[in-house]
Nucleic acid binder design. Structure first.
Lengths: 204, 204
DNA sequence: TGTACATCAGTGAACGCGCGTTCACTGATGTAC
DNA sequence: TGTACATCAGTGAACGCGCGTTCACTGATGTAC
């Protein structure tokens, strides 16, 4: 909008007003997040990265926690978009699962943050946060709608969500040591369709 | 071993030497862990809870990180024991899965700690830590051995592990709002046997 | 049984650090006239 | 086009805090003789 340069200067030099500090803060925060992990997010370092004083952030966010929440929102939006963009066709569900895991493994720290790591206990459990996380669940659920009996819909979606959530985190944590990650994930997801071929239903 | 009381006192009163401070520290740490979450574990407060000075901990642990690692070891041991104790019989795998999720939901913060939350990035990824986590994987894998073709063994175990890991964490995070948790988990696990009844295998 | 002494397991004080946040301020911007 | 002024978005200094850890110490214990 206003990229105004002071008329006396021609080179880019430090301007007193930043222009879009809010965005810049989020960007730096996200960078820091992925470099240091969710629990190391720090307001002072975020500001430092931008060459800006720490208190300046308070003109844009109420607190450090607010910045974290904004990142979570960003993540939820991106994940939804990504899942929504999976093209229709054969194996839609499976490809959706792959997209999910791919998002997590490309944004590992953000993904962990989205599920509450590094946030205080109160923030983690607040309902807005839970709703944000649920975005993914609802997409999965809606994709399952035409394929599964209504009675199975909730459990089925929860099953799939658990699966991709678990696989994402194990992947992020380098918990399995496969050469080809994509292939490994694909094989794991295939089980979601056919099961492991065992009756697990008989109880006690 | 040595519950020696100073002969001049008859009431329990503070003794200069604690007796088994190491164990006491771990116990207090675990208590604190479950109350405040993995990233709030603090050496000073652990000591405070025991009415003991903070530096005393250094006679028993190299650092705060060491305490956390000891807790993770404790958790891994308990989880293995619990999974190992599931009685043989029909639906063994399913009951193992339920036991897994039950462990996680009874020790939510410990479970999160076991998977690296609150530990520094280096600790999280160190191989000893990864091995500890793998304990569960190996039990699952061995239970699957007689039921699945060798080619499917690794993927199958990873599938199941992802599923129970994901379900555990979603449960811990209060991400689903079911009345009967046990039943919900059971229904989710049932899908592991039969799948969702969709061919997900056809790709692209 | 008594004593000297090495060793162990505590202690309080202090160090150094970096954090989130508040405060009173100032420079820059945009607008009304 | 110029000027006064309100508002906005930065600043440096400081506050208060609590943390993990180190240090030189001391009280207690157990053992050799």
């Amino acid at each position: 909008m206003k990229k105004v340069m002071r008329s006396t200067t021609r080179t880019t030099r430090k301007r007193y007003h930043h222009g879009d500090l809010r965005q810049a803060l989020l960007h730096a925060a996200r960078e820091m997040l992925e470099e240091q992990g969710p629990s190391s997010l720090g307001l002072r370092e975020i500001a430092r990265r931008l060459g800006v004083s720490a208190p300046s952030a308070y003109h844009h966010f109420k607190s450090l926690g607010d910045i974290a929440v904004a990142l979570v929102e960003q993540g939820a939006r991106e994940l939804s978009t990504k899942l929504g963009a999976v093209p229709n066709g054969n194996g839609l569900l499976s490809r959706t699962g792959e997209a999910y895991v791919e998002f997590a493994s490309k944004n590992p720290a953000l993904y962990r943050l989205m599920f509450g790591e590094g946030l205080t206990e109160e923030t983690r459990r607040n309902t807005a946060m839970i709703d944000l996380r649920n975005t993914a669940f609802h997409i999965i659920r809606s994709r399952l709608e035409n394929h599964v009996s209504p009675a199975d819909l909730n459990s089925g979606a929860l099953f799939l969500w658990s699966l991709v959530h678990g696989a994402s985190l194990l992947l992020i944590d380098r918990q399995f040591d496969t050469g080809n990650r994509k292939l490994a994930i694909r094989r794991v997801l295939q089980f979601a369709g056919k099961g492991i071929g065992l009756k697990l239903t008989s109880m006690q």
